[in-house]
């Protein structure tokens, strides 16, 4: 059984204590503290990372069970010198305040735009069939797994819609 995990393109050895969550592994063991701990119980979304293309709460999964997996964290999406489109849009639209939920929001939004393209439905979808749209109502529901206590939701939706519409025209 391989005991390595790929994070942002780099291989790492998994922790020996099976109790270590993927979140604590990232933050404590690897110093990738861009991924945040807000509740440690899957109730806030601050720890959202993308594993094999799917967004998950990294607090509710054991690092040891991710051998061979490919993980993207906020650090893998962009840098201050070269931010991703969503990262830049969050700055432009002030899609944050304190910034603590922000990496989770952006990881979540990154995966969410792919989900919409792939036709995933949501609780806000009028119909379960057909193409899904990155409408404001859809984004609000699909981003409801990421709490923002500062109350930047309106700006978060604006930032995501901005990128989604660029995607359509590009």
């Amino acid at each position: 059984m391989p005991d390595t995990i790929t994070i942002n393109g780099t291989d790492h050895t998994l922790p020996s204590d099976p109790r270590v969550s993927l979140l604590d592994f990232l933050r404590h063991d690897l110093g990738l503290s861009g991924t945040k701990k807000g509740c440690d119980h899957g109730q806030c979304g601050a720890c959202t990372v993308i594993v094999n293309g799917m967004r998950i709460n990294s607090c509710l999964t054991l690092a040891a069970l991710h051998d061979g997996d490919d993980v993207t964290t906020i650090e893998g999406l962009g840098t201050p010198e070269n931010p991703s489109a969503l990262q830049a849009a969050f700055v432009e639209h002030d899609g944050y305040q304190c910034g603590y939920c922000t990496p989770g929001q952006i990881c979540s939004a990154t995966a969410m735009l792919d989900e919409i393209k792939a036709g995933f439905a949501s609780d806000a979808s009028e119909s379960l069939d057909g193409e899904m749209e990155a409408s404001a109502d859809e984004i609000r529901e699909r981003m409801s797994g990421n709490l923002c206590r500062c109350g930047a939701y309106a700006n978060i939706v604006a930032a995501i819609r901005d990128v989604a519409s660029q995607g359509e025209t590009a």
């Binding site: 979304g45 967004r55 709460n57 995966a111 995933f120 439905a121 797994g145």
Partner: peptide
């Protein structure tokens, strides 16, 4: 299913 939890949780 879609009325429950969040996309992150439903993915797991």
């Amino acid at each position: 299913i879609l009325a429950g939890a969040t996309q992150q949780l439903r993915n797991r």
